[in-house]
Amino acid sequence: MTTIQNHSDTQLPYQNQYPSTQADAFHGAGSSDIDELIQGNPKLWRGCDMAGQSMHGRSTGFTQLDAILPGRGWPEKGLMEIITPHWGMGELQLLIPLMRSIVEQGKWILWISPPYLLYAPALVQAGINTDQVLVVKLDTSCKDALWSMEKALQTENCGLVLAWQNWLPTKVLRRLQLAAETGDTLGVLFKHHDSEHSPSPIRLKIQDSYSENAGFNESEVTVIKARGNFRSLSANINLYQQA
């Protein structure tokens, strides 16, 4: 309903200015104004190529990844899943630009039981203020970790909540998603295995790369699912830009 409404809204003022057909205006051929109008509206979904998607997300900092994500970036709130075969495959590098922007907003980043010690000098190098980083220790029980995650997602002061939980039931995921929406927070779950029917709006996978080439710098990131995308897309990204 809203989509149709928006179509007519955006088109009406331009009808006199551009006496071309409606279809022409819709594809934005030769009119950047219309493009901007259409792309600036997060409620408007267009069933065409991803490249033409609107820009209402928070840029990931990687242009190739922006291109394949709906909204041209991370969502403002909600739950994400990042799947890697092992820990430490560049999944944090993927989030560094996001963390930086969240810290700049004055919000906090909570790490819930990360598998290894979080190393402060690296955070400082990445330009993340460690004053706004909190860690919940590894030996926290799963129940407590989930409880903290839910509470943190509900708190507006937390901008990003990272958690390492391999297997979570759908019910829990839904609950976390709901908490993230109430708190306007982004939650990221790191997992080893993909679960096909997970309700999280975004699922990414960082692939194992078997390249023998020593100079290989790019990792393959696949968007398995993203609310708004209708097929999985992948991109090769140089995750270690600084390193």
Partner: peptide
């Protein structure tokens, strides 16, 4: 958080 997890379970990271 501290009430639930215990006093020394929430850490700040410093370089």
């Amino acid at each position: 958080l501290q009430a639930r997890l215990g006093e020394n379970h929430v850490k700040s990271v410093n370089s």
